[in-house]
Amino acid sequence: MSILEVENLSVSFKSYTDGFKEINHKVISSLSVALEAGEILAVVGASGSGKSLLAHAILGILPSNASISGSIKYKDEELTAARLATLRGKELALVPQSVNFLDPLMRVGSQVRTAANGGDAVSAQRKVFERYHLGKEVENMYPFQLSGGMARRTLLSTAMVSGAKVIIADEPTPGLDPVVIKEALSNFREFADNGCAVMLITHDIESALQIADKIAVFYAGTTVEIASVKDFVGKGEAIRHPYTKALWRALPQNEFIPIPGSQPHPSSLPSGCLFAPRCEMATPECEQAQPEMRELRDGMVRCIHAT
């Protein structure tokens, strides 16, 4: 049973261009992912593919000009706005990207304490800090005094003290040195091993492969493939979607071949398969309609040619 299930999610933004014309930008379209307890799901995609918005959509903190359709279920029950209000910060927690997500004028210890739910917040915060090797003096510091690694661990601490069952980590690794990255990732692994679920949103496929159980590949606002980490071996024969294959081949330790072209902007999406314009396997059929997500060899793929 999935603890968190996103089905057919679409997110669009209203904006105004010259001449006050209202346009709808669809940034996420018909997206489906599921998160199991005890598992790390890595959502991998290039920047601008709508990964962060997925996190914000699940937590219901999208800006007011965003509209959302589809369904998000937590423990088999629809996550309505009212239900979200009671779960946010208690069962669902976000680990944001950078130190900018900490209040610049509040001591970090107090900020972590505000995330605690019931019980003795101070001792909970001290315990978590100790666990993440944050010295006693850190709780009295302001965010600007933290190093990148300390800030990361502080952000992680907010999720830890909340006792959440599901953690959504948004790009937790960029700008960190390899040692800190390794440490941060192992923290997530530990968290999942304790029976919680982690959604790790990242563009760093290499780090994702190290600790995740499943990989969801994101392209232009939707998932193109959901595969087990085990499929990412050798020349990538077990991988289903041409985009995932291309990503795998582009890694330096593999063939180091870049993919030509770039991801389409939400305002000019192709009518058929979103990847077709850059795909080697594309046929006229691909441009007819966007392929549905289908099951294939214990994974999911959004491609009519995949075998």
């Binding site: 903190i61 209000a85 910060g89 944001p96 900018n100 997500f101 209040d103 995330a115």
Partner: peptide, 14 residues
Amino acid sequence: ASDYVLFARARGEK
């Protein structure tokens, strides 16, 4: 509209 208020909302503050 800042990131830290967004994060506070994500922690359930309102």
